[in-house]
């Protein structure tokens, strides 16, 4: 009885700021993808319908730029929080419980393949699994590349004074390829590995409620337990 209550003990996995940022990223990312691909595939009827629904080319363009600015503000807010976490909360940005890549991630990957082919137990992840770290770094780094190429295309008059004009062409191609990668990754890899796996199907609620249980932590991120109660010990 006692242990059962303990198993269902509610723990906080994500703070309010992180939950809000995740919702913000969700909305702006979707808007960016929809407006961007509607322009890329503008010969299709669905794309033309979407664009006219968003107020034609100027409306969709405005939405794309505003969403991009919001997305970048979210990234900045997160970077500010990282500074706060390091300086005020005296947290570790590179420890085993951080999102910083560790050698253990590679070992976890190998262990996970052993598990996938039925030759071992699933890896005991720390606070963030290697796939969750990829989710994080894909957004943080991908956002920089999307932002730079997007700015190049948005202000070609200014940037062609710094670079040769054909760099704008290159930015155009990179922006599209990166978009395919980002949407392809989020829509399939992030969605299935985080939200659609049988344990949590149809939705991993902890990123929205911030809450999780001890049983779930012990299963998905056994290493997290120590980090959550490190102060209380």
């Amino acid at each position: 009885m006692e242990s059962n209550r303990y198993e269902n003990q509610i723990c906080v996995r994500f703070c309010v700021l992180h939950r809000l940022l995740h919702i913000g990223v969700m909305i702006t990312f979707t808007l960016l993808a929809v407006t961007g691909f509607a322009l890329k595939f503008s010969t299709e009827t669905w794309a033309q319908g979407l664009i006219s629904f968003m107020g034609g080319v100027p409306g969709a363009g405005w939405l794309h730029r505003v969403s991009a600015a919001m997305f970048y503000l979210i990234v900045m807010a997160h970077l500010v929080w990282l500074g706060y976490y390091k300086l005020v909360l005296k947290g570790h940005l590179t420890g085993p419980h951080s999102l910083f890549p560790q050698i253990k991630d590679f070992q976890d990957l190998c262990q996970n393949f052993r598990y996938i082919f039925g030759k071992g137990e699933p890896p005991l992840f720390n606070r963030f699994s290697y796939l969750e770290k990829v989710d994080y770094w894909a957004v943080l780094l991908g956002m920089q590349s999307m932002g730079i190429t997007g700015l190049l295309m948005g202000y070609p008059e200014f940037f062609s004074t710094l670079f040769p004009g054909y760099v704008i062409n290159i930015a155009n191609d990179l922006h599209f390829h990166e978009a395919v990668l980002a949407v392809g990754y989020i829509a399939v890899v992030h969605m299935s590995a985080t939200h659609l796996i049988p344990e949590v199907f149809p939705l991993e609620k902890s990123i929205f409620t911030g809450k999780t249980t001890k049983a779930k932590i012990m299963k998905d991120h056994p290493g997290e337990w120590n980090s959550l109660y490190a102060d209380e010990k």
Binding site: N112, F113, Y115, I116, G118, L131, V134, I170, D173, L174, H177, E178, V180, L181, G184, Y185, V188, V189, S192, A193, L196, I197, P198, E199
Partner: peptide, 28 residues
């Protein structure tokens, strides 16, 4: 540059898609 970035994107997607596919198979 365009071809290089396309190759990069295809390689990344292939790697992560196969990983996800296998992991989902195992979990299901």
């Amino acid at each position: 540059v365009s071809a290089l970035s396309l190759i990069f994107v295809i390689l990344m997607l292939c790697a992560f898609y196969s990983h996800t596919f296998l992991l989902m198979l195992r979990k299901i």
